[in-house]
Nucleic acid binder design. Structure first.
Lengths: 181, 181
DNA sequence: GTCTATAGAGCGATAGAC
DNA sequence: GTCTATCGCTCTATAGAC
C-alpha cells in the first residue's frame, strides 16, 4: 500500500500551524503533528529535514499572513496599529514564533524586510528624516503592548482597552507633530 | 554523614539564578541545578516543592533587583528608562522570567504592584490624570524595545542605539507636553 | 513514501534506605 | 536531609524493511 503519498509539505505545514495555535509554542512536536495527520512521526522527515526547518516554515507563513493583513490598511497609522494588535491577539503562538524564530534562511528574512519597509513607509510622511527611528518606536510600542497584555499587566479585555492603546498612539503622533514643527 | 544540611533555600536560589542566566530559560533543570551544587537532584525538593515554585522564587528575586535598581533613579524619566533597559539587557533570562512567570502567589504579586506604582508615580507629574495610560505606554515601549532587540530588528549595539532609544522617549515626552497644554 | 523499531538523550517527580 | 534507584514520560532523529 505504500506508494501513493499520504501527505504533502503543504498539508503538514497547515496542520503544524493549526497545532501550534491550539497547543501553543511547546505543543508543536513532530510526534503530535504526525498523530494529527495519522502518520508515523518520521514520515514528516521526507518533507522537512528537521523540526527547526518546519518551525521556520511556520514562522514565514505567519509573517506572510501578518504582512497581508497590514497591507489592507489604507495608511492611517491607528488602523495599521490595530491590525497588528489584532493579529498578535488572535494568533499569539504564531506571532510569537514570528518574532522569536532565529533560524530563518536569507530568503525567508525577506518577508521580515518587507514588513519593516511597510512600517517605515507608513511613518515617512509624518516623521520625514526620522522615519527609521519613528518606526522602531512605533513597532516597539505595539510589540510591548502585546507582551504586557500577556503578562497580565495590561488587560485588553478590561474597561477601555482601545482607549488605552490609542492613548499611547496619540502620544506618539503628537510627538511627531511637534517634531515636524 | 547525612545529618548536617549541605545547602539551604538561599543557596539553591542563588545557584538557580546563576544557572538561569548562564544557560537561559530552558537550561534551568533540577538535575543541572543539583549537579551545580554537588547534590542529588531530589535534595532540592526539601527546599522547593516543585520546579515551578523554584522558578517563581527566581522571578521574584529578579523583580526585586529590578525594583531596587529603578528606585535609585532620581525621577527623571530617561534615567528610569535606561535603568530598565540595562537590566533587561544584562539579565535577559531573569527579565524574561519576571515578565512571563504566571505562577506567582498573591504575596509575590506585591512586587509587581510596587513596580507598577513606581512607573505611574514617575509619570504623574507629567501626565496628571492620564498617568495610568501614560505608564502603560512607557512600559510597553520599553518592553517592546527589549523584545525587538532580541528579534534582531533593533540592534542596540549598532550605530547610535541610545539615540534611537531616546528618540522614542522624546516622542512620548513631547506628546505628554502637548497633552498638558 | 511510509512503516516499525529503536537509539540516545532529556525531564519532573517519587519511594524508601540510611 | 541526603542518598540511590527508578518510574514514566517527553522529545528529535536514524536504520532498515517493505
Amino acid at each position: 500500500m505504500p506508494y501513493p503519498a499520504k501527505t504533502s509539505a503543504e498539508e503538514i505545514l497547515a496542520a503544524a500551524v493549526e497545532l501550534l495555535e491550539r497547543e501553543g509554542q511547546g505543543g508543536l512536536s513532530l510526534r503530535a503533528l504526525a498523530a494529527e495527520l495519522h502518520l508515523s512521526p518520521n514520515a514528516l522527515y521526507r518533507y522537512y529535514p528537521s523540526r527547526e526547518a518546519l518551525l521556520a516554515a511556520v514562522a514565514v507563513q505567519g509573517a506572510q499572513w501578518l504582512l497581508t493583513d497590514l497591507q489592507t490598511a489604507t495608511g492611517a497609522l491607528p488602523q495599521l496599529a490595530h491590525i497588528y494588535l489584532k493579529f498578535a491577539q488572535e494568533r499569539p503562538a504564531l506571532y510569537d514564533l514570528y518574532m522569536t524564530c532565529d533560524s530563518l534562511s536569507a530568503a525567508q528574512r525577506q518577508i521580515y524586510d518587507e514588513h519593516w519597509e511597510l512600517v517605515v513607509g507608513a511613518l515617512a510622511p509624518l516623521a520625514g528624516a526620522h522615519s527609521r527611528e519613528a518606526a522602531i518606536t512605533l513597532w516597539a510600542y505595539l510589540h510591548g503592548l502585546v507582551g504586557l497584555e500577556r503578562s497580565g499587566v495590561y488587560d485588553v479585555s478590561a474597561e477601555k482597552p482601545r482607549n488605552t492603546t490609542d492613548f499611547g498612539l496619540g502620544l506618539l503622533l503628537a510627538g511627531l507633530r511637534e517634531l515636524a514643527r
